[in-house]
Each structure stands twice: as C-alpha cells, then as structure tokens.
C-alpha cells in the first residue's frame, strides 16, 4: 500500500521533471525573437482587427508600424489621431494628423424613389445579386439592398432601413475602416471627411446613366444637368459620366447646390436646423 503510493508519487514527479526539461529545450529551440515594442504598440491600437489600415489585423499593423522608418503613411482609421499620437509617442516619432472620415452612402434609390422592375429571389447577398444581373430596378448603379455592407461592418454602424430598403450609417459608430466600401459590389459607399462641425454636402447618387434614363429609373437620381456645377462659387463640383461629384476639400458648405438640384440628389448632412423650421 505504502509502496504503491510512493511509486506513483515518484513516477509522476519524474515524468513531470523530464517533460519540463523537454519543454524548456523546445521553447529555446523554437523561440521567436520579437521586438517588444510591437506588443506595446499593439496595446495602443483598438484591437478590432478590422483591417481598415490595410493590414491583416492589429498585430500585423503593429509590426508594420514598428518596422516603418516613418509612420506618417500608416494610419489607423478606427483609433484616429488620438491612437496614432500614442503610437508615435511610443516609437518616438511625429504623428501626421489626418481628417476623420465617415462612410457615406451615395444612393437614394429608396422603394419610393426607385420603383422595382422585377423581383429578386436568389440568395440575399449583394455579391450574388450583382454577379447575376443589373438589379431589380431600372438603375444599374444603385444600391442592391441585400445588406452585404451591414454584415461587413464590425462596429454595428450600418443597419438596413426597412422602409427605404437602403442601409443607414450611424455616424457615431462609424470608424471609416472601409470594410463596407470593399463589400459593396456597386461601390456606392464612399469614405468622406466628416467635415467642419460634422457638416457635409454630398451627391447622393451613383448613376452614370444619361439624364433621361436615370430620371426614369429613379426620381432622386443625379441627371448630370450641371446646374450645381454652375452655381458652385468654389468650383468644388465636377460632372463626369452624367454624375456630379463634390470635392470635399473644396466644398465650403454654402449649400447653394442643395437647393439648386432639380431632383434633390444633393443632400446636406448634420446642418443645424434653422429656428423657423424647428417651430414648424
């Protein structure tokens, strides 16, 4: 009885010690030498592993940051300037300020504006739908409404609005990681600077069809008439392929184009409401 106990204890101890030694040597043999700054930098990063920086994940990005001679060209859109400053401190470099961006949906083809011409019945995925055909409305450029961008967003910033059939961006949650831009087969989502006091003026349409065709397909389409281009005092609006584009770096938020647009394709975001409107 006693000897059984003894043998067991001794045996297990011996096995344990032997394995520990083996483990030690294995660990030595396969040791990976890593710059310890990588871990410190990674700790500064948001840890969302969203890939918005172009790297495979936050660890990968930290490696690139440490390896880079100048971190100016690297930017974490999720953490923004705050995180980049922290990283710059760790690495003893200067961070380059970048404007905060936000995802903007450039389509206003809601069920009301853009009547359906057929019914799509395949797998509910924009990718599948785009590969199959031009879409269930007469507009070949607009939102397909299957929500690939919603499922691509890791921050819950996108949601489908059931009444319009279009995704909605929750600007407070959007980190401008760009996942939705990559997920959208029609590339109708654009990352734009949030703008002064969060105010933006954007052409909410992506249709490159000629005016009449675009108008017929969707009542809120940009018809490329050029009125906005003429009225813009800052030359911020260009028209290419029947589609107006407002350059955010030139736009001074005068909103003249908004009222000039005959189809209402130009929207202003987050402008403070006039007191009169509040009463009304």
């Amino acid at each position: 009885m006693d000897s059984t106990l003894l043998i067991t204890v001794v045996l297990i101890t011996v096995v344990g010690v032997v394995l520990a030694i083996v483990l030690y040597f294995v660990a030595q043999k396969f040791k990976v030498v890593e710059d310890e700054r990588i871990d410190i930098v990674e700790a500064c990063l948001p840890g969302a592993n969203c890939g918005g920086c172009g790297s495979a994940g936050c660890h990968d990005f930290a490696q690139r940051l440490v390896a880079a001679p100048q971190i100016g060209s690297l930017f974490c859109p999720v953490g923004g300037n705050e995180v980049m400053n922290k990283v710059a401190n760790v690495l003893g470099q200067e961070a380059v300020e970048q404007a905060k961006m936000v995802a903007v949906l450039k389509c206003n083809g809601s069920c009301f504006n853009r009547p359906k011409t057929n019914t799509y019945e395949g797998l509910s995925s924009c990718r599948v739908k785009a590969a199959l055909y031009s879409g269930d409305t007469a507009c070949r450029y607009g939102c397909l409404g299957c929500g690939d961008c919603v499922s691509a967003c890791k921050f819950g910033a996108l949601s489908m609005d059931v009444s319009t059939g279009l995704p909605v961006v929750d600007e407070s949650k959007c980190t401008a990681c760009g996942a939705c831009v990559a997920a959208c087969p029609k590339t109708i989502i654009e990352l734009r600077p949030v703008g002064l006091k969060n105010c933006r003026v954007v052409v909410i349409c992506s249709s490159k069809d000629k005016g009449a065709v675009a108008r017929k397909a969707c009542s809120a389409a940009c018809i490329g008439c050029g009125k906005c281009q003429k009225i813009c005092p800052f030359g911020a609006i260009t028209i290419e392929n029947n589609l107006a584009y407002i350059d955010p770096s030139l736009c001074k938020l005068c909103t003249k184009c908004v009222s000039e647009c005959p189809t209402g394709a130009i929207h202003k975001f987050n402008f403070p409401k006039k007191p009169k409107e509040d009463i009304a």
């Binding site: 011409t117 057929n118 799509y120 019945e121 395949g122 797998l123 199959l132 055909y133």
Partner: peptide, 9 residues
C-alpha cells in the same frame, strides 16, 4: 409585363 421573378439558376 412587370415584376417577373429573377434568380440565379
């Protein structure tokens, strides 16, 4: 002839 169903094969 409106609203036919379209789906992949």
């Amino acid at each position: 002839m409106a609203n036919t169903i379209v789906s992949p094969a």
